[in-house]
Design a protein around this nucleic acid. Structure first.
Lengths: 74, 74
DNA sequence: ACATCATGTCAAGTGTTCTTAACATCCACT
DNA sequence: AGTGGATGTTAAGAACACTTGACATGATGT
């Protein structure tokens, strides 16, 4: 299983809070594919810093509202 | 040559503001090599989201204090 | 029953991030 | 002059982010 990233996110909640935006539409807005959004939303890996900024910008919230980094790390 | 990233950062200033911390020491604290810190500090590429969080944590500032993403992107 | 849409999965490939190791320069110290 | 610390550079490769395309499922609508 590799290590499925330490970063968590609130993308799914933000999508629904923003007019039921679909994964495909979010992908289109930030310039990545649908599959990439799915993988990030599920925490399979964490996005690049640039993509993180772009996603936060789509929802018009600060980056910390979208992504959280837990205190403890193994 | 790829594209030297759109994200800018204030790592160098933060290092000096925190007791003249060296690149090697910062690298050690976030668990990456000295060369990686140099490359990021120079904007050769942007770090992963996880590393960005870790760096911000070392300096005890929010992520946006370390990394900036310009409004316009081509 | 059939079509469509949103979500999810898989595999193979491309590109970027990060590592290791070696070498070079500048500065401070002795 | 010689030593050592901090920074910078390069090159080869490993690890991870992201793409493309194809197929599967459940929900909704006709």
């Amino acid at each position: 299983m590799g290590k499925p990233t330490n970063v968590t996110n609130s993308i799914r909640a933000l999508r629904f809070a923003n007019g039921e935006m679909t994964q495909a539409e979010l992908g289109g807005r930030v310039g990545v594919t649908r599959q990439t959004i799915i993988a990030i939303e599920q925490g399979r890996y964490s996005p690049s810093l640039e993509m993180a900024f772009q996603i936060a910008r789509v929802f018009q919230v600060p980056l910390d509202d979208v992504f959280q980094y837990p205190d403890t790390e193994e």
